[in-house]
Amino acid sequence: MIVDANANLGNWPFRRTSYNDPKRLLERLARVDIDRAWVVSLDAVMYKNVHAANAPLAEMAAEYPALMPVATINPTFPAWERDLVECKESLGYRGVRAYPNYHQYELGDPAFDDFLAVADDLDMFVEIAVRMTDERHHHPLCMVPPVELAALPDLAAKYPRLPIMLINAKNTDLVPLIEPTEGMENLWFEMSHIEGTGGVEQLGRSLGLEHILFGTHAPYYYPESAILKVTRECEFSEEEQEAILYGNAGRLLASAGP
């Protein structure tokens, strides 16, 4: 059993990606024995009214039990709260993703605090996408810096029941979080962007392997990258490997509530 906590459907404006519809994505992931995937809509990132992507994604994923869709919300856009309630109560979403950098707010923005409070009330989990692609070669008309994470430990402490998951965070984003997030049970780290020789093992042990989630960032990334890191490069015990590949994902969902 392998759960990919970071896969994408739909179109990315700056590169044509293959395998970006549900059927082809699942077939591609199955090539490396990934059974289930948590998917977001790439279309939502650049939409002004991001909620427009949530109903179609839910509908698309409904036909594929192996997919769990994750909604997208921009808490600086009007009526987001009503949209988020609709995501949970009508569309069946359990998780919601924020793109503070693409949607131009900081983690310290009061709107983000409100967002976490509502997600907490709704028993959802929250994903923060730290980046989407390598900043060094963004499109020149759309240069988007990564999310500044210094405010994260305080926010996570304020909502101890709310699972918060960092997506696409690199080593340099995560190292400063090791100390201030020590012992926090509600913070989760997806590993697709952890680099360096043995990086997932070394950084993962520092952050706590019980909070590392397997993720591929497919189809933007080759899913083989994450698979090789966890199953071949790093020296994990069988229990540790199972926790990363699916066990931790299950615990995250359970901790979010029904």
Binding site: K48, N49, A52, F77, P78, A79, R82
Partner: peptide, 11 residues
């Protein structure tokens, strides 16, 4: 004008 935002503002 930026109507997705405008409409949602006055629901």
């Amino acid at each position: 004008l930026n109507w997705e935002k405008g409409l949602k503002t006055v629901i």
